[in-house]
Design a protein around this nucleic acid. Sequence first.
RNA 1: GGGGGCGUAGCUCAAUUGGUUAGAGUGCCGGCCUGUCACGCCGGAGGUUGCGGGUUCAAGUCCCGUCGCCCUCGCCA
Length: 591
Amino acid sequence: MAGSSWQRTHRIGALSEANVGEQVVLNGWVAKRRNMGGIYFLDVRDRFGLAQVVLTGSEERLGWSMDEGAILAPEDVLSIVGKVQKREQPNPDLPTGQIEVIATKVEVLSRSTLPPFEIERDSDANVELRLRYRYLDLRRPDMQEKMAFRSRFIGAMRNAFLARDFLEIETPILTRATPEGARDYLVPSRVHKDHFYALPQSPQIFKQILMVAGMDRYFQVARCFRDEDLRADRQPEFTQLDMEMSFVEEENIFETWEGVLVDTFRAAMGIELPATFPRLTWHEAMERYGIDKPDTRFGMELVNLSDWASTSGFGVFENAVAGGGRVMAICVPGGGTSYSRGAMKNLEKRAKESGAAGLAWWKPGETGGGAGPVAKFFEGAVGESLLQAVGGSQGDLVLFAAGPRALCWRVLGEMRLAIGREQGLAKPGAWNFLWVTHFPMFEWSEEEGRYFSAHHPFTAPQDWELGGDPAEMASRAYDLVLNGWELGSGSVRIHRRDVQRRVFDLLGITPEEQQAKFAFLLEALSFGAPPHAGFAVGLDRLVALCKGLDSIRDVVAFPKTLAAVDLMCQAPSTVTDQQLADVHIQLRQDS
RNA sequence: GGGGGCGUAGCUCAAUUGGUUAGAGUGCCGGCCUGUCACGCCGGAGGUUGCGGGUUCAAGUCCCGUCGCCCUCGCCA
């Protein structure tokens, strides 16, 4: 057990009254110095906490001198020998505030130059500096707690899957480029001239092949790579909790994840989630919330007024319906008073940014009518029937959208979220998980004149026969949504070679291309592929959300900037001519 | 690629309409102090105003370019 004499006997943060009277050795960083002249207080920090060390000139001291103490600098690494004593004046703000350590010996294990910013819980140093000196940023108690939480959370999730007989299996990081989806990160091959590996956007195909291999239940904490532009919630490399199951359908996936998340939230956060989450079809989500990842922490749902509008006598609305579109609305409770003229201008501006021609709004008055550009059309009975249709009353604010349904959804969906944010409508402390199912199978791309997979090309259709108009086909893809954030997505997969072929065909992938890029998958599907389904959750986002953070940078140890640069190690970098020659690459000089 | 914001002392920020020697807080260094814990008091050091160019008698401030960071739209199956 005995190591070198400088090695700690206790963790600093673990010291308590139980240790009073004990001789201890502590290792940690100088956090704060308070020199009173004849007595010197030192706050010393390790990952587990902080405690006060007292240096005095009394006869108790051993191998200690104040002169040396005076030159201790912030972030010096120390080994302290001393005795724990109960404080006469406890500090109630400190977990170790009941005790202090009277030092008999202080050894400097490592000197620190003055850090570029102070290592304290709440740093106000700017992001750039924090990223350049990430090891100092991570030394802050705040960041250490976030990293610890992430570790604990992922550990709990891992345990939950292992307890359900899932196998944790690693899949390759060096794999092959995929034709659909995000831009790939490429890695040139030295051995094979002109050939490249790609880093995986996700382990999608590998996990399906693990199902063909009879692994039955797979999961992995998987790093994924996508070479697209970044956001606060998007890094070029990110971590997914990826899983796949054989002989299952949607409900089995939902039940598994509900159980895993209940277990994880309980173990990592002490939060008791409901045993099941609501299920909503994509169509229902769009009709009620105007978005496929609804924040259900508040109401204010969309209302379809098309029936009412077609007989309203208000030309603009009647024409919208007659033209094949619709009229929809949301009713802001109490919005009649909380939204002033100026605030309405803001809302109008936002509606236009969402693609609306304008924003019709109405503050219903006592006997119909009321205020707003369209109020004069809603006098009397028309207004009353309208008010009834939107479920509102005097003092509310009604916002209208007219036109194609997709436009109405988008405009009112965004209005709803913006107003919800402004008014603080979301119930605090709520964890509103929900499943969104029946996503569309395909999306039409105007630029390329072909369909793209709404999820990915291995997603099973609701109808195995793939009948009807591709634009109307529903898939067996589903998302998990938490408080308006898309946490993850998955689907029942295509386990039939013939169906996979037909989907490739519908996507405009030629038979030659199918052969070149997916031969191994199609072949695998021909060797007895079990029906299977899976799911993946973005862990960075989930952990950030659990900690109430807007940016995933705060839960990633070494994140990159919006320009995909690592400010600490300065990646990406140039490489030597020899390295380029090894991988048969010649740089272009023209760009 | 488009739009927006920011860049001044180690750090966080201020600096009137373009006008004196670019300030404050904090940190750091030195001195004093035996019970502090945001210690206190006294003193001190510390500036390529991101970088380059321009306009002007005069630029932190105005103009052009450029670099970096952040937010966002496109993009992210």
